[in-house]
């Protein structure tokens, strides 16, 4: 694989004896949409602030596009576009003037790109209105436009789905995936896991300041056993049959009943086949036997609750 665009190595931040972030490491490659997940207060924003040079790490190394943030911060930041926490802009200026303010800091090419990025985020019609009159969704889009002005290799978005309606979120998803297809690395933090699952291919999960899992979503989820849910006509009889099947293979597992009346247990494909024939033999009609893929949200709750780690 190519060189990582963003490489974070054993990052640590301490403020007056409190460790906000410790031993955080991960790599983000070109073309990846990388999700940075964790509950509120886990250290996501602190980590992002260190990546973009707003906060000085107590220990560890951050490299962006080959430049070390500690020793070469200006060169490193020229490779980055970012929104930290909220899309920040001057409400008393128009969208265009806001873009111009930042573009002028980054040179002539950025100034020439203003119309291009405005079109990219579909703001060209409202560009000359004051930002004060923008909705939160439009501010998010203007924020992304600001971040893209310098044609970055790495786009960092902190909670980008905040304030977006479902249509806006879907639009953002296709937009970011298109950007990633062109080779941009996108780094997204969020606590909304269902969004991230659809958006990202790789994730790092952070809790209490440390990264506890990192990798491709598919690989992470493949390691977990999957539940099978059964819809049958006689749940009580069926429960006994299922428990017998499990026990006969030496598995001590519980069969639980979901709120909708279907039975849920964990078993492999072979056992499912055996259970189906046994149920029929016992006169239970099977309407549905469905394997439920564990969602990132379930995985996240298992991982962050501590018990399952």
């Amino acid at each position: 694989m190519a060189q990582p665009v963003l490489s974070v190595r054993s990052l640590e931040k301490r403020v007056r004896n409190r460790t906000l972030v410790k031993d955080v490491s991960f790599d983000v490659y070109p073309g990846q949409v990388f999700g940075f997940l964790g509950p509120n207060g886990a250290g996501k924003t602190t980590t992002i602030r260190m990546i973009v040079g707003l906060i000085r790490p107590t220990a560890g190394e951050i490299t962006i596009g080959g430049y070390k943030v500690r020793t070469d911060p200006l060169r490193a930041m020229q490779e980055v576009g970012c929104i930290v926490e909220n899309p920040d802009m001057y409400p008393y200026l128009s969208g265009r003037e806001n873009l111009l303010q930042l573009a002028r800091m980054q040179g002539v090419e950025a100034v020439h790109r203003i119309d291009e990025v405005a079109k990219l985020v579909h703001l060209e019609d409202r560009l000359d209105d004051k930002v004060r009159t923008y909705s939160l969704g439009m501010r998010q889009r203007l924020g992304i436009a600001q971040a893209l002005l310098n044609n970055p290799k790495l786009l960092i978005l902190d909670e980008p789905t905040n304030g977006l309606d479902p249509a806006g979120i879907r639009e953002l998803r296709t937009f970011l995936q298109a950007l990633a297809k062109d080779g941009l690395a996108v780094f997204i933090s969020s606590h909304l896991l269902s969004e991230i699952e659809l958006l990202c291919d790789h994730v790092a999960i952070i809790r209490d300041g440390s990264v506890i899992k990192t990798g491709a979503i598919d690989t992470l989820l493949a390691g977990t056993a999957d539940d099978v849910s059964w819809r049958v006509d006689k749940p009580d009889a069926a429960r006994r049959v299922l428990e017998d099947v499990l026990r006969s293979h030496g598995i001590v597992a519980e069969v639980t009943e979901s709120t909708k009346g279907s039975l849920i247990c964990r078993m492999t494909d072979d056992l499912v086949a055996e259970a189906v024939s046994n149920l029929e033999a016992h006169g239970c009609k099977v309407f549905e036997a469905a394997r439920r893929r564990i969602s990132l949200e379930d995985f996240f709750l298992q991982t962050t609750s501590g018990a399952a780690v």
Binding site: L54, M77, V80, E85, D88, Y90, L102, M105, Q106, N150
Partner: peptide
Amino acid sequence: SGGTIKMLLTRGVS
């Protein structure tokens, strides 16, 4: 207080 300092300081200008 407006948060715009983050924008100013992440543009690759010292």
